[in-house]
Nucleic acid binder design. Structure first.
Length: 649
RNA sequence: GCUGCUGUAGCUCAGAGGUAGAGCACUCCCUUGGUAAGGGAGAGGUCGAGAGUUCGAUUCUCUCCAGCAGCACCA
């Protein structure tokens, strides 16, 4: 038998017969390691302890102390254990797939009866029984025909389909948890008892399409979370509870920012406080755009179908458009219009007025463009995914050879804005050519290369979204995260070869001939609605002072201080601070609590002492201690804080 | 749009086949109190909408609307 050499992390090399398993290697190293071992990394691949190793390799044996590997195994085994529990309770249930995801796993089932929340308790109980049995985990490699026959006999059509979808005729790995069997890539633990029985929880039931295809069966998905110890589970559940408190829908109510109602689903009624944030943010973006060489425009809301037919939206996007038909009796003629779902075609109309020269390029055109999209009902989410919203939209008309430099300028522009808004870290995703697309491969090559190299030159390595680009060009997405870790695309930067063609945009080149400009679609905050939602969640309602809708409440402690309170408020207002008086006949405790709940960043309490000394007692949101300071000093500090970051000296 | 769940006062929620309740918020009165809820009184609801079953429905059934979680969607 051939000999192989396995090298341990400490550099120690050991020699074995080929086909030895990591489990046997662990046993050879020490008895205690054999007991604690859960899996191994063999030349970078995560190996089951039972898999044979056939060639020289670097090897590291893992125990429960190796968090990444342990989590993966625990979650993966729990997926199998849950599926087994479900089939033991409801034997007519068909199993499908159950992958490991962030913090846990899910498994999709096909069963006529819906699972109920009470069922989750039943399943959890059964899972704990299975764990307590310490059933061995076995693995075998089968050929396809045998596996297909096996699942056909069992009446598991989804498994058969999965096998058919696995390319080539690579052998299939079968796993047993006790008597229960599943098709699985592995690796797994050695027996069910290795799964901590007190560190997992079934979280929710939801529908999910088989193979992610909305034309196929709707399965029932059960989500679970799991960790290597119960403290970690508790910490996770705690984190979720805390995150729920940051939900922008809850804070929006508590801070009196906005509301939504049935008569206008997916649209926002901005209250004075919320609109303050909105306009403050918009002013900021507008100043940045001016500084960045943009011209600002404004275009119509209701636009005749003809333009949408020409742009291609009528064909491709119609079911997402609000159609406005004007009644003949009230109009000169019957007209079919659409509320604009995006601004680009309108911007091309402005570009097309007059004759453009290559000297005009790059032309950076911006609009706070209000758009209406009939989003599917299930997609709506607070103010983060809505049907009526305003983008900080912009289109850069440029030559093909300017794509890269414009992209670089834009990434810099966006980064600086995000930094000012408190987002130091954001994800960048790069989406390249989809299967169905316009334009030649040569042009796509250049565009993709331009986006990528501009991004990398900015020191950012984007995440790749293969095939996720628009049909008209590749794109960069700038992604921020909400309170519970869901990703939201905010900024975007897309290359477009198609629209200038369809709407016949041209410029006169140096050669005196007509040329087609390239269009770069870009948005930084994306939509004000979504971005403000993210801002609220990111800061848990404690917005940076300059963005806070209510900045200072000056609260009287006794009515003797009323006149001075008014004086303080006036002083602050003159210094550019949003200040208001609270002269109500309430105790200071009450006032402090109420304004703290309302997330007012600064409360200035004023009683007789302050009146006499011309001071104020300063209390900042989230801090217990207060400090008594001269009014002039406080005014200077707050005036500075109230100044937007781009205007500070 | 799909699967499941939910819809009772401004908010958070209880409740029952015989036309509704709590706490907070709101209004008024008392209280002038030193940093997260002082006390009292009062007002407030076509129980999401429509239809059906019933002597009688907010409660049971159906349809619709909206929200929540996930999936699909986000050109």
């Amino acid at each position: 038998m051939a000999q192989i050499t396995l090298t341990l992390p400490d550099g120690n090399a050991r020699h074995y017969d080929a086909g030895i398993t990591a489990g046997e290697v662990a046993a050879d190293i020490s008895k205690s390691l054999a007991k604690k071992a859960i899996s191994a990394t063999v030349d970078g691949a995560h190996y089951d302890l039972a898999w044979p190793i056939e060639a020289d390799a670097d090897i590291a044996i893992h125990t429960m102390q190796d968090e990444d590997q342990a989590n993966e195994l625990v979650r993966h085994d729990l997926a199998h254990i849950m599926a087994r529990a479900v089939q033991e309770i409801w034997p007519d249930t068909k199993v499908t797939i159950g992958p490991v995801i962030k913090d846990g796993w899910y498994y999709d089932f096909d069963r006529k009866e819906p699972f109920t929340p009470e069922d989750l308790g039943l399943i959890e109980k059964k899972m704990k029984e299975i764990i307590n049995k310490r059933d061995p985990v076995r693995t075998e490699v089968w050929d396809r025909a045998r596996a297909v026959k096996h699942y056909e006999d069992l009446g598991e059509p989804y498994k058969v389909e999965l096998i058919d979808a696995i390319p080539g005729d690579e052998p299939l790995r079968m796993y047993w948890h006790g008597d229960w069997q599943d098709l699985c890539r592995g690796p797994h633990l050695q027996h069910t008892g290795q799964v901590p029985g007190d560190a997992f929880k079934l979280m929710s039931i939801a529908g999910a399409y088989w193979r992610g295809d909305s034309d196929r069966a709707m399965l029932q998905r059960i989500y679970g979370v799991a960790f290597t110890g119960k403290e970690k589970l508790r910490a996770h559940l705690n984190m979720l509870e805390e995150a729920a408190k940051r939900d922008h829908r809850k804070l929006g109510r508590e801070m009196d920012l906005f509301h939504m109602q049935e008569e206008a689903p997916g649209q926002v009624f901005w209250h004075p406080n919320g609109w303050r944030i909105y306009t403050e943010l918009q002013d900021f973006v507008r100043r940045k755009q001016r500084a960045g060489g943009y011209v600002e425009v404004n275009t119509p809301q209701v636009v005749d179908r003809k333009l949408w037919v020409q742009s291609g939206h009528w064909e491709k996007y119609q079911e997402n458009m609000f159609i406005v038909e004007v009644d003949e009796e009230h109009a000169r003629e019957k007209a079919v219009n659409a509320l604009k779902p995006m601004n680009c075609p309108c911007h091309v109309q402005i570009f097309n007025q007059g004759i453009k020269s290559y000297r005009d390029l790059p032309l950076r055109m911006a609009e706070f463009g209000s758009c209406a999209r009939y989003e599917p009902s299930g997609a709506l989410h607070g103010i983060m995914r809505v049907r009526g919203f305003t983008q900080d939209d912009g289109h850069i008309f440029c030559r093909e050879d300017q794509i890269e430099s414009e992209t670089a300028i834009y990434i810099d522009f966006l980064s600086s804005m995000y930094r000012d808004l408190g987002f130091e870290n954001f994800k960048v995703k790069f989406s390249d050519r989809p299967e169905k697309r316009s334009g030649s491969d040569e042009v796509w090559d250049k565009a993709e290369e331009a986006l990528l190299s501009a991004t990398r030159n900015a020191g950012i390595e984007p995440e790749l979204n293969p095939g996720e680009g628009a049909f008209y060009g590749p794109k960069l997405e700038f992604v921020l995260t909400d309170a519970i870790g869901r990703d939201w695309q905010c900024g975007t930067h897309q290359v477009d070869f198609v629209l200038p063609e369809r709407l016949d945009a041209t410029y006169i080149g140096e050669d005196g001939a007509k040329h087609r400009p390239v269009m770069l679609h870009r948005a930084t905050v994306g939509s004000f609605e979504r971005f403000i939602g993210i801002l609220i969640e990111e800061h848990a309602g404690k917005l940076p002072f300059w963005l806070a809708p209510r900045q200072v409440v000056v609260a009287s402690i006794t009515s003797d201080a009323d006149d001075y309170v008014t004086e303080v408020v006036e002083t602050l207002k003159k210094a550019g601070v949003r200040a208001e008086a609270d002269l109500r006949n309430e105790k200071i405790n009450y006032k402090v609590r109420e304004h703290s709940v309302g997330k007012v960043p600064v409360i200035l309490a004023v009683g007789n002492r302050e009146v006499e000394e011309k001071t104020v007692s300063v209390r900042r949101l989230g801090q217990k201690q207060t400090s008594v300071e001269p009014l002039a000093d406080v005014t200077a500090t707050l005036s500075h804080d109230a100044t937007p970051p781009d205007l500070r000296g």
